[in-house]
Write a protein that binds this DNA or RNA. Structure first.
Lengths: 135, 135
DNA sequence: TTGTTCTATGTACTTTATGTATATAGCTTT
DNA sequence: AAAGCTATATACATAAAGTACATAGAACAA
Protein backbone atom coordinates (compact mmCIF):
# COMPACT_ATOMS: atom_id res chain seq x y z
CA UNK A 1 0.00 0.00 0.00
CA UNK A 2 1.33 3.37 -0.98
CA UNK A 3 1.50 6.10 1.64
CA UNK A 4 -1.18 8.73 1.63
CA UNK A 5 0.75 11.48 -0.08
CA UNK A 6 1.50 9.16 -2.98
CA UNK A 7 -2.02 7.87 -3.23
CA UNK A 8 -3.47 11.08 -4.51
CA UNK A 9 -2.45 10.72 -8.12
CA UNK A 10 1.21 9.88 -7.90
CA UNK A 11 3.34 12.89 -8.42
CA UNK A 12 1.84 15.22 -5.89
CA UNK A 13 1.84 18.17 -8.26
CA UNK A 14 -1.39 18.32 -10.13
CA UNK A 15 -0.39 20.17 -13.18
CA UNK A 16 -2.85 20.95 -15.89
CA UNK A 17 -0.97 18.54 -18.06
CA UNK A 18 -1.28 14.85 -18.34
CA UNK A 19 -4.71 15.30 -19.80
CA UNK A 20 -3.68 12.79 -22.43
CA UNK A 21 -3.15 10.10 -19.80
CA UNK A 22 -6.57 10.69 -18.33
CA UNK A 23 -8.23 10.51 -21.74
CA UNK A 24 -6.41 7.25 -22.45
CA UNK A 25 -7.50 5.76 -19.13
CA UNK A 26 -11.08 6.68 -19.90
CA UNK A 27 -10.94 5.22 -23.40
CA UNK A 28 -9.35 2.01 -22.15
CA UNK A 29 -11.90 1.72 -19.38
CA UNK A 30 -14.52 1.35 -22.05
CA UNK A 31 -12.65 -1.16 -24.19
CA UNK A 32 -9.13 -2.36 -24.99
CA UNK A 33 -7.18 -0.38 -27.55
CA UNK A 34 -3.86 -0.07 -29.37
CA UNK A 35 -1.69 2.93 -30.21
CA UNK A 36 -2.72 3.90 -33.70
CA UNK A 37 -6.37 3.11 -33.06
CA UNK A 38 -6.48 5.29 -29.95
CA UNK A 39 -5.35 8.32 -31.92
CA UNK A 40 -8.65 8.44 -33.76
CA UNK A 41 -10.64 8.13 -30.56
CA UNK A 42 -8.65 10.93 -28.93
CA UNK A 43 -10.08 13.26 -31.53
CA UNK A 44 -13.25 13.29 -29.44
CA UNK A 45 -11.34 14.92 -26.59
CA UNK A 46 -9.95 17.61 -28.83
CA UNK A 47 -6.62 16.03 -29.76
CA UNK A 48 -6.11 16.97 -33.36
CA UNK A 49 -3.30 15.59 -35.50
CA UNK A 50 -1.26 18.75 -35.09
CA UNK A 51 -1.51 18.64 -31.32
CA UNK A 52 -0.76 14.99 -30.70
CA UNK A 53 2.25 13.33 -32.18
CA UNK A 54 2.57 9.58 -32.36
CA UNK A 55 5.76 9.45 -30.33
CA UNK A 56 4.08 11.15 -27.39
CA UNK A 57 1.24 8.67 -27.49
CA UNK A 58 3.44 5.58 -27.51
CA UNK A 59 5.72 6.96 -24.85
CA UNK A 60 2.72 7.77 -22.68
CA UNK A 61 1.25 4.30 -23.06
CA UNK A 62 4.55 2.67 -22.10
CA UNK A 63 4.87 4.94 -19.09
CA UNK A 64 1.34 4.06 -18.04
CA UNK A 65 2.24 0.41 -18.29
CA UNK A 66 5.31 0.96 -16.09
CA UNK A 67 3.01 2.62 -13.57
CA UNK A 68 0.76 -0.44 -13.80
CA UNK A 69 -2.30 1.55 -14.83
CA UNK A 70 -2.51 -0.58 -17.96
CA UNK A 71 -1.19 -3.91 -19.20
CA UNK A 72 -0.62 -5.07 -22.76
CA UNK A 73 -0.36 -8.09 -25.02
CA UNK A 74 0.56 -8.61 -28.67
CA UNK A 75 -2.26 -9.20 -31.07
CA UNK A 76 -1.17 -11.11 -34.17
CA UNK A 77 -3.03 -12.58 -37.08
CA UNK A 78 -5.07 -9.52 -37.95
CA UNK A 79 -4.45 -7.46 -41.08
CA UNK A 80 -1.21 -5.49 -41.17
CA UNK A 81 1.58 -5.58 -38.58
CA UNK A 82 0.88 -6.97 -35.13
CA UNK A 83 -0.44 -4.58 -32.51
CA UNK A 84 0.28 -4.05 -28.86
CA UNK A 85 -3.14 -3.99 -27.25
CA UNK A 86 -3.60 -2.19 -23.95
CA UNK A 87 -6.09 -2.93 -21.15
CA UNK A 88 -6.81 -0.88 -18.06
CA UNK A 89 -5.98 -2.36 -14.62
CA UNK A 90 -7.73 -1.90 -11.30
CA UNK A 91 -4.98 0.56 -10.33
CA UNK A 92 -5.67 2.42 -13.54
CA UNK A 93 -9.35 2.67 -12.70
CA UNK A 94 -8.54 4.12 -9.30
CA UNK A 95 -6.12 6.57 -10.87
CA UNK A 96 -8.78 7.67 -13.32
CA UNK A 97 -11.25 8.30 -10.53
CA UNK A 98 -8.70 10.50 -8.75
CA UNK A 99 -7.91 12.41 -11.90
CA UNK A 100 -11.55 13.14 -12.53
CA UNK A 101 -11.74 14.78 -9.12
CA UNK A 102 -8.69 16.86 -9.88
CA UNK A 103 -10.10 17.89 -13.23
CA UNK A 104 -13.31 19.00 -11.56
CA UNK A 105 -11.32 21.31 -9.29
CA UNK A 106 -9.29 22.50 -12.24
CA UNK A 107 -12.41 23.29 -14.18
CA UNK A 108 -13.75 25.33 -11.28
CA UNK A 109 -10.56 27.39 -11.20
CA UNK A 110 -10.71 28.06 -14.91
CA UNK A 111 -14.36 29.04 -14.61
CA UNK A 112 -13.52 31.49 -11.90
CA UNK A 113 -10.82 33.11 -14.01
CA UNK A 114 -13.05 33.42 -17.05
CA UNK A 115 -15.78 34.88 -14.87
CA UNK A 116 -13.40 37.49 -13.49
CA UNK A 117 -12.16 38.35 -16.95
CA UNK A 118 -15.67 38.89 -18.23
CA UNK A 119 -16.44 41.03 -15.24
CA UNK A 120 -13.40 43.13 -16.11
CA UNK A 121 -14.47 43.39 -19.74
CA UNK A 122 -17.83 44.77 -18.73
CA UNK A 123 -16.19 47.30 -16.46
CA UNK A 124 -13.94 48.57 -19.24
CA UNK A 125 -16.86 48.74 -21.65
CA UNK A 126 -18.93 50.88 -19.30
CA UNK A 127 -15.93 53.15 -18.64
CA UNK A 128 -15.47 53.63 -22.37
CA UNK A 129 -19.10 54.64 -22.79
CA UNK A 130 -19.12 56.94 -19.78
CA UNK A 131 -19.89 60.51 -20.86
CA UNK A 132 -20.39 59.62 -24.51
CA UNK A 133 -23.68 59.53 -26.32
CA UNK A 134 -24.72 56.27 -28.00
CA UNK A 135 -25.88 56.34 -31.62
CA UNK B 1 5.12 42.63 -35.72
CA UNK B 2 5.33 39.00 -34.84
CA UNK B 3 4.38 36.45 -37.47
CA UNK B 4 1.03 34.78 -37.24
CA UNK B 5 2.14 31.50 -35.72
CA UNK B 6 3.76 33.38 -32.87
CA UNK B 7 0.83 35.70 -32.32
CA UNK B 8 -1.46 33.08 -30.95
CA UNK B 9 -0.07 32.96 -27.45
CA UNK B 10 3.64 32.64 -27.97
CA UNK B 11 4.72 29.10 -27.60
CA UNK B 12 2.31 27.47 -30.00
CA UNK B 13 1.61 24.55 -27.68
CA UNK B 14 -1.27 25.40 -25.46
CA UNK B 15 -0.51 23.29 -22.52
CA UNK B 16 -2.73 23.26 -19.50
CA UNK B 17 0.07 24.94 -17.64
CA UNK B 18 0.93 28.55 -17.40
CA UNK B 19 -2.28 29.14 -15.52
CA UNK B 20 -0.22 31.17 -13.08
CA UNK B 21 0.78 33.61 -15.82
CA UNK B 22 -2.82 34.12 -16.84
CA UNK B 23 -3.92 34.75 -13.26
CA UNK B 24 -1.12 37.28 -12.86
CA UNK B 25 -2.09 39.09 -16.04
CA UNK B 26 -5.66 39.30 -14.84
CA UNK B 27 -4.66 40.60 -11.40
CA UNK B 28 -2.32 43.18 -12.93
CA UNK B 29 -4.98 44.27 -15.39
CA UNK B 30 -7.02 45.39 -12.42
CA UNK B 31 -4.22 47.18 -10.57
CA UNK B 32 -0.44 47.22 -10.22
CA UNK B 33 1.12 44.70 -7.85
CA UNK B 34 4.36 43.33 -6.45
CA UNK B 35 5.62 39.81 -5.81
CA UNK B 36 4.75 39.15 -2.21
CA UNK B 37 1.48 41.05 -2.43
CA UNK B 38 0.32 39.05 -5.43
CA UNK B 39 0.67 35.79 -3.54
CA UNK B 40 -2.26 36.65 -1.32
CA UNK B 41 -4.42 37.61 -4.27
CA UNK B 42 -3.59 34.37 -6.06
CA UNK B 43 -5.35 32.55 -3.27
CA UNK B 44 -8.60 33.53 -4.96
CA UNK B 45 -7.63 31.43 -7.98
CA UNK B 46 -6.85 28.41 -5.87
CA UNK B 47 -3.12 28.87 -5.39
CA UNK B 48 -2.52 27.75 -1.84
CA UNK B 49 0.81 28.17 -0.08
CA UNK B 50 1.73 24.55 -0.68
CA UNK B 51 1.06 24.79 -4.40
CA UNK B 52 2.81 28.05 -5.18
CA UNK B 53 6.35 28.63 -4.13
CA UNK B 54 7.84 32.10 -4.06
CA UNK B 55 10.63 31.31 -6.48
CA UNK B 56 8.18 30.25 -9.15
CA UNK B 57 6.26 33.48 -8.75
CA UNK B 58 9.29 35.74 -9.09
CA UNK B 59 10.68 33.75 -11.96
CA UNK B 60 7.35 33.95 -13.73
CA UNK B 61 7.08 37.71 -13.24
CA UNK B 62 10.58 38.25 -14.64
CA UNK B 63 9.83 36.05 -17.61
CA UNK B 64 6.65 38.00 -18.25
CA UNK B 65 8.65 41.21 -18.20
CA UNK B 66 11.09 39.77 -20.72
CA UNK B 67 8.13 38.95 -22.93
CA UNK B 68 6.96 42.55 -22.49
CA UNK B 69 3.61 41.57 -21.04
CA UNK B 70 4.41 43.62 -17.95
CA UNK B 71 6.84 46.38 -16.97
CA UNK B 72 8.16 47.21 -13.54
CA UNK B 73 9.61 49.97 -11.38
CA UNK B 74 11.08 50.10 -7.89
CA UNK B 75 8.87 51.49 -5.17
CA UNK B 76 10.89 52.91 -2.27
CA UNK B 77 9.92 54.84 0.84
CA UNK B 78 7.16 52.51 1.96
CA UNK B 79 7.46 50.33 5.03
CA UNK B 80 9.97 47.48 4.81
CA UNK B 81 12.29 46.73 1.91
CA UNK B 82 11.66 48.34 -1.48
CA UNK B 83 9.37 46.55 -3.86
CA UNK B 84 9.41 45.87 -7.55
CA UNK B 85 5.99 46.91 -8.74
CA UNK B 86 4.59 45.37 -11.92
CA UNK B 87 2.14 46.91 -14.41
CA UNK B 88 0.45 45.22 -17.36
CA UNK B 89 1.26 46.44 -20.89
CA UNK B 90 -0.94 46.59 -23.97
CA UNK B 91 0.79 43.43 -25.22
CA UNK B 92 -0.02 41.83 -21.89
CA UNK B 93 -3.68 42.72 -22.26
CA UNK B 94 -3.77 41.15 -25.72
CA UNK B 95 -2.03 38.06 -24.40
CA UNK B 96 -4.59 37.76 -21.61
CA UNK B 97 -7.45 37.96 -24.08
CA UNK B 98 -5.91 35.12 -26.11
CA UNK B 99 -5.37 33.03 -23.03
CA UNK B 100 -8.96 33.42 -21.94
CA UNK B 101 -10.04 31.98 -25.28
CA UNK B 102 -7.69 29.05 -24.85
CA UNK B 103 -8.95 28.44 -21.33
CA UNK B 104 -12.53 28.38 -22.57
CA UNK B 105 -11.61 25.64 -25.03
CA UNK B 106 -9.69 23.83 -22.32
CA UNK B 107 -12.66 24.01 -20.00
CA UNK B 108 -14.89 22.52 -22.68
CA UNK B 109 -12.51 19.58 -23.10
CA UNK B 110 -12.40 18.93 -19.38
CA UNK B 111 -16.20 19.11 -19.22
CA UNK B 112 -16.46 16.58 -21.96
CA UNK B 113 -14.16 14.18 -20.18
CA UNK B 114 -16.00 14.49 -16.88
CA UNK B 115 -19.29 13.97 -18.69
CA UNK B 116 -17.99 10.79 -20.31
CA UNK B 117 -16.68 9.52 -17.02
CA UNK B 118 -19.99 10.05 -15.30
CA UNK B 119 -21.73 8.30 -18.15
CA UNK B 120 -19.41 5.36 -17.61
CA UNK B 121 -20.04 5.36 -13.87
CA UNK B 122 -23.78 5.11 -14.42
CA UNK B 123 -23.28 2.24 -16.84
CA UNK B 124 -21.18 0.30 -14.32
CA UNK B 125 -23.69 0.96 -11.58
CA UNK B 126 -26.59 -0.39 -13.59
CA UNK B 127 -24.52 -3.44 -14.59
CA UNK B 128 -23.74 -4.10 -10.92
CA UNK B 129 -27.41 -3.99 -10.05
CA UNK B 130 -28.48 -6.12 -12.97
CA UNK B 131 -30.14 -9.31 -11.78
CA UNK B 132 -29.88 -8.49 -8.08
CA UNK B 133 -32.73 -7.49 -5.83
CA UNK B 134 -32.55 -4.14 -4.05
CA UNK B 135 -33.20 -4.01 -0.29
C1' DT C 1 24.50 48.13 18.90
C1' DT C 2 24.26 43.59 17.95
C1' DG C 3 21.79 39.83 16.70
C1' DT C 4 17.44 37.79 15.04
C1' DT C 5 13.42 37.71 12.39
C1' DC C 6 10.56 39.23 8.63
C1' DT C 7 9.77 41.08 4.06
C1' DA C 8 11.15 41.01 -0.49
C1' DT C 9 13.63 39.71 -4.49
C1' DG C 10 16.52 36.85 -7.09
C1' DT C 11 19.66 32.87 -9.02
C1' DA C 12 21.14 28.06 -9.69
C1' DC C 13 20.30 23.37 -10.14
C1' DT C 14 17.12 19.44 -11.02
C1' DT C 15 13.14 16.94 -12.56
C1' DT C 16 9.17 16.20 -15.38
C1' DA C 17 6.47 16.57 -19.46
C1' DT C 18 6.61 17.14 -23.96
C1' DG C 19 8.25 18.21 -28.70
C1' DT C 20 11.11 16.54 -32.67
C1' DA C 21 13.60 13.42 -35.33
C1' DT C 22 14.72 9.09 -36.57
C1' DA C 23 14.81 3.86 -36.57
C1' DT C 24 12.80 -0.64 -37.32
C1' DA C 25 9.95 -4.11 -39.18
C1' DG C 26 6.49 -6.47 -41.35
C1' DC C 27 2.48 -6.24 -44.45
C1' DT C 28 0.52 -4.47 -48.93
C1' DT C 29 0.53 -3.10 -53.39
C1' DT C 30 2.39 -2.43 -57.88
C1' DA D 1 11.69 -6.53 -55.70
C1' DA D 2 10.77 -1.74 -54.67
C1' DA D 3 7.84 1.60 -52.65
C1' DG D 4 4.53 2.82 -49.39
C1' DC D 5 1.66 2.04 -45.37
C1' DT D 6 0.80 0.57 -40.53
C1' DA D 7 2.62 0.12 -36.13
C1' DT D 8 5.81 0.51 -32.51
C1' DA D 9 9.80 2.34 -30.31
C1' DT D 10 14.02 5.05 -28.96
C1' DA D 11 17.16 9.13 -28.64
C1' DC D 12 17.90 13.83 -28.22
C1' DA D 13 16.30 18.62 -27.17
C1' DT D 14 13.41 22.03 -25.02
C1' DA D 15 10.16 24.01 -21.77
C1' DA D 16 7.77 24.44 -17.45
C1' DA D 17 7.94 23.82 -12.92
C1' DG D 18 9.94 22.10 -8.43
C1' DT D 19 13.63 22.70 -4.90
C1' DA D 20 17.22 24.87 -2.65
C1' DC D 21 19.84 28.54 -1.62
C1' DA D 22 21.58 33.57 -1.67
C1' DT D 23 21.09 38.46 -0.78
C1' DA D 24 19.69 42.61 1.52
C1' DG D 25 17.42 45.93 4.07
C1' DA D 26 13.77 46.95 7.75
C1' DA D 27 11.84 45.98 12.19
C1' DC D 28 12.37 44.52 16.61
C1' DA D 29 14.17 42.76 20.83
C1' DA D 30 17.82 42.05 24.15
Amino acid sequence: MKNESELFCVGKYHKMERFLEVCLLLLLHDEVGYGYGLIEKLDYFGFKEDELNVSTLYRTLRKMEQDAWVTSYWEEGGPGPKRRVYMITEDGKKELAQWVMILKARKARISRLIEQYEHLENKIESEDNHGTIQN
